[in-house]
């Protein structure tokens, strides 16, 4: 029930952000507010069902504003820096065609599903590395465009990401 309420509140806030400026009741028109409530409720019910079907256990940990702040710091700090460096690197590889691809296994040892998802997405967004698959032990299989060593240390593949994600989610 609490999960439903939280999902509803976030869906409604999202709808408000999308329709800001539609009227003069503060920023919204009355029609948009009513439809927002209806759609937010539908979206909340559907997402709770999806969570259940996928066997995901949502935790209240991520509601704390400190974790959100850390997440934004991570996004615009170390993550964006790596993104820039790696983009220039891959841009060079596109032009010179110098590649040495391969699929390597890394075991980040993150405890939560959300943390593992966040790491897999960060790795995929960073150019040169692409998460292909995951196994039961939460080990990631990463396609690497320039394999530095066949059994790499985790820092070689994704620099300081696991450290930051551990701080955000655990």
């Amino acid at each position: 029930m609490a999960i439903l309420a939280i999902a509803f509140i976030f869906a409604f806030l999202f709808y408000l952000a999308l329709t800001a400026g539609s009227g003069n009741l503060l920023f919204w028109s009355i029609e948009e507010l009513v439809f927002g409530l209806v759609f937010a409720y539908l979206a909340a019910i559907l997402s709770v069902r999806l969570f259940k079907a996928a066997g995901v256990k949502p935790s209240a940990k991520m509601l704390s504003p400190k974790r959100w702040l850390l997440f934004f710091v991570y996004l615009i700090g170390p993550f964006f820096l790596e993104l820039t460096k790696a983009n220039i690197d891959v841009a060079k590889r596109v032009v010179t065609k110098k590649i040495k691809p391969g699929i390597v296994k890394i075991s980040p040892g993150l405890k939560t599903d959300f943390g593992t998802t966040l790491l897999a997405n960060s790795i995929t967004l960073t150019p040169g590395t692409l998460t292909v698959d995951i196994n039961k032990k939460k080990e990631l299989f990463v396609h690497w465009i320039w394999v530095e060593s066949k059994h790499p240390k985790i820092e070689q593949v994704c620099s300081s990401f696991p450290k930051w994600i551990r701080r955000i989610t655990e």
Partner: peptide
């Protein structure tokens, strides 16, 4: 299969 791959850890999995 990945072309010209130097290593493929997923194969054994």
């Amino acid at each position: 299969k990945p072309k010209n791959a130097v290593v493929d850890d997923l194969k054994g999995e």
